[in-house]
Design a protein around this nucleic acid. Structure first.
Lengths: 214, 214
DNA sequence: CTAACTTTGTAACAAATGTTACAGAAATTA
DNA sequence: TAATTTCTGTAACATTTGTTACAAAGTTAG
């Protein structure tokens, strides 16, 4: 278990405890990490890869909430497992993912024992809140074309590549709209030379980063 | 300071500390409790009345996130003040409000000292997350007419009255749309005998609770 | 009381998004 | 190779939401 990335902000003694009590788990691309309605018993800390966190509604519509990458953790899981609640969200491995699960008994213990842990947890809570607020902002105030652009940029940031691998259908699901709408908007972007479309792939052109005029 | 409502789930010794260190604040209807961008130094626990929590975006559009009522607290404030962050939200007194502010030094101290406090805080985190998720769900998956109905129901629940006092403009702001649209939808509801419209008042009819068909 | 302001109703129109349907290309499977 | 499935493009149309403009009624301040 390589916890180097955590050692910059967590105490040495705590890192050792994480080594001892944390449970290392690996998931391959596309694998389901947490499902809606399942009980949560651990809080995950992502070591490698990216985790996609989604919300499903009663009609099985789903919408992307945010991504978790290196050193980030899902504090929603924390607040859930303190009371052994069921998950309100679904998590999927976006690529190959390595994470440590911290059992909930330790979560509480460390909160008092290690100030750096308390800070880490609180920072996580804050980051998740802010992500959710950004998500609300995006849905409530921005049109689909802007949301699509933001989505593609975020994909690029996470993967580090200008080539985004995803079908129009997947994108439509994650933005909670329909495939035809996404195809239409992507085609517009292609016509404006912002992207090039291939099957299951979208290539972002250099001036994708430039501001967009309509 | 009357903390009876807290004593059912918080330890006696903790209640005493809250008496001692908590700062009682009162706000009258419409008063600003927390503004966007201000530093947060306390976590509020609502004792009386209802607090409306809103999100503003860069263009000063605002949208309703949720309401806080008796015994509830805004854990977003907590995670913020641990790191002395600026507020991401705005809070307004929906009616006359009484709340206790817990200084952030105590927040941390009590976390270790009182298990009931830790549980309360974690429960709050969880409740806020769920409210935000519900908010996302509502905006992403439901049409405006459904959101408006949900909004009116929530208002009724909080006020305990079938007469909702609000202008179309206020409602439009809180649902992040325009006044004309709200007037249109309200008129539809009135035509369907679900509500009666007055100036600054909306009266919900008995079968407002019944399922709606279009 | 009058003037100014706020609230509501309504129409007409524009823009954005959703839906259905179908065809052809690409990939996968048998 | 042939059959099947998945993905994409496109059109035509419906619905929802947003915008602008204006009038009338109610409220408040001077």
């Amino acid at each position: 278990m390589n916890l180097d990335q955590l050692s910059s902000f967590l105490e040495t003694a705590l890192i050792q405890e994480i080594q001892e009590f944390g449970i290392l788990q690996t998931f391959s691309e596309g694998e389901l990490i947490m499902d809606y309605g399942k009980y949560i018993r651990m809080m995950p800390i992502v070591l490698k890869g990216t985790v996609k966190v989604l919300r499903l509604d009663e009609n099985n519509n789903e919408i992307l909430l945010y991504y978790l990458s290196s050193s980030e953790s899902c504090s929603m899981a924390y607040s859930c497992c303190v009371e052994a609640k069921k998950s309100e969200v679904k998590a999927i491995a976006e690529d190959d993912v390595e994470l440590i699960g911290i059992p909930h008994t330790k979560l509480d213990e460390w909160l008092c024992k290690y100030p750096s842990w308390k800070n880490y947890v609180m920072r996580s809570f804050n980051e998740r809140f802010i992500e959710l607020l950004k998500s609300i902002e995006s849905i409530a105030f921005h049109k689909l074309d802007e949301r699509l652009i933001a989505y593609l940029k975020e994909k690029k940031r996470l993967s580090g590549s200008s080539v985004i691998k995803a079908s129009h259908n997947t994108i439509a699901d994650e933005l909670a709209t329909s495939r035809v709408v996404i195809s239409r908007l992507l085609k517009q972007l292609e016509n404006n030379k912002k992207i090039i479309l291939y099957r299951n792939e979208i290539k972002l052109m250099p001036d994708f980063e430039l501001p967009f005029e309509k």
